[in-house]
Design a protein around this nucleic acid. Structure first.
Lengths: 258, 258
DNA sequence: CGACCGATTGATTCATGTCAACAGCAGTGG
DNA sequence: CCACTGCTGTTGACATGAATCAATCGGTCG
């Protein structure tokens, strides 16, 4: 990990999200910058910029948690450190990560690509919090969003069929690109098959097989191993919906809400 | 739903949690009251107390989100409203729920038992936020905790074997009791088998079978259908650990952290 | 008592895990 | 330039464990 003084050619830490309490704030779920320029500048003053090489560890589970991170560029995975490599989340630019419990990181984090990030030490950050209610409010917004993301993850894992899980995963990446205003049409998949498996709860073999199946059914196309495009959008949506269709057994209806 | 003016025989909304940045703050993960008496009183001033009968809906997915809730007593489930009944979370006293996206609730919520809760309207709450940095900070702490909880949920769903999932679920309930200082020895299970299934990602039949299996193996004992005790603690831990043991195939080693 | 809901249990099916061989590709070093 | 090695991804054969369908049972409510 390299440490560099926060330079001024960037405005400072950047948090993208949507205010959960403002209706249709920018319409179709588009995220935007939550922080004002002055907030970003103030945060820049207490932070440093760090770089990680591909594959480098950002922190390990149980490490003393003295900072949180804000990604400028690259992709990070947050995973269970205890031998079990299940991945809890993929983190992208404008995301915040490094949550702790009782002062220690609960998960481990590793750079999947080369990563640049702001490192925000806890102590000065808490100082800022105490003086800046708006900043805290924005962090609350971001946390709500991460919570929603974690729920979506759990929702996907509740799905039984492998193709639905993979399709949900692709949709997640696609929506992420869309929310960031990136070019559509092609989905960039920065993580390898094994990491996908750890995230969606399938074996490496099953992930590979499922991709192959979707290609055979002409639902998706794979150029590069990391560039996927949805060919048959209707079939894609049908797969995603397919999850809700089943599990329509006896127990469901009439009881859920009365 | 009944609405009652917030009475003064209670101190006001109550949020339990642990400050994620204070090391071993009360040792073994014990949670405590995050709000001061004056904060609680101020929140009480802007909130009302609501009651829900068993089975009653608190809100539905897509409803205009104009308030969040803080449980005083009872258990609530938060579930996906779109026909698909998967449960995202069980909420207990001192929990906060009612998160929204663009001003609308994303999930539906239903009372599993009779429930009493504070209802905190968003508009005045945001007023209070603007004037009370400490309150916001406490909400951040709570959100971090809920995020962690959602991650644990996803972690459990990543598990393949039914007995591990059920054991994790029981452990979750047990730790919940412990964190609240409730009596140990017996686990109170306020939800029915079907709800458990929706939460842990198993069919109703599989939940039932798995409980039966654990009883047959003398790992747990079932008195009442909602009162379970762990008989063979060692075997119980072994089952929980069993998850991490597998998935040790080729792909894992040497790459996760270098 | 009949109807209904929650729960248990059995028989069968089928998707995914597991094991294993192998192919593509990159990096390394002679 | 070419073996050698290691990692990533693909594919096949087989076993397994949970979903599904369905019958049954106990409790509760009217």
């Amino acid at each position: 990990m390299d440490v560099i003084a926060a330079s001024f050619d960037r405005k400072g830490p950047s948090i993208w999200g949507a205010n959960p309490w403002v209706p249709g704030n920018s319409g179709h779920g588009l995220r935007h910058q939550l922080l004002s320029d002055t907030e970003r500048a103030r945060l820049a003053a207490i932070s440093s910029i760090v770089r990680f090489k591909k594959g480098e560890a950002v922190y390990r589970a149980g490490d003393r948690a003295d900072a949180i991170f804000n990604i400028i560029g690259g992709v990070v995975k947050s995973y269970c450190g205890n031998g079990d490599g299940r991945i809890m989340a993929f983190l992208f630019p404008h995301d915040l990560f490094g949550l702790s419990e009782e002062g220690a990181y609960v998960n481990a984090a590793q750079a999947l690509t080369a990563v640049t990030a702001y490192r925000l030490p806890i102590a000065p950050l808490r100082q800022r919090f105490a003086n800046d209610a708006l900043l805290e409010y924005h962090v609350i917004c971001k946390l709500c969003e991460e919570l929603r993301q974690a729920e979506r993850h759990a929702f996907m894992l509740g799905e039984r069929r492998a193709d639905v899980r993979i399709a949900s995963f692709l949709q997640m990446l696609e929506q992420l690109h869309a929310a960031n205003g990136d070019a559509a049409g092609e989905i960039y998949v920065p993580m390898n098959r094994s990491d996908i498996g750890e995230y969606v709860g399938l074996s490496l073999a099953a992930v590979s097989r499922t991709f192959a199946g979707l290609v055979r059914r002409k639902v998706i196309g794979i150029r590069d191993r990391r560039r996927i495009e949805v060919i048959d959008r209707a079939a894609f949506e049908r797969i995603l919906a397919g999850g809700g269709a089943r599990r329509s057994s006896r127990r469901r209806q009439g009881r859920q809400v009365r």
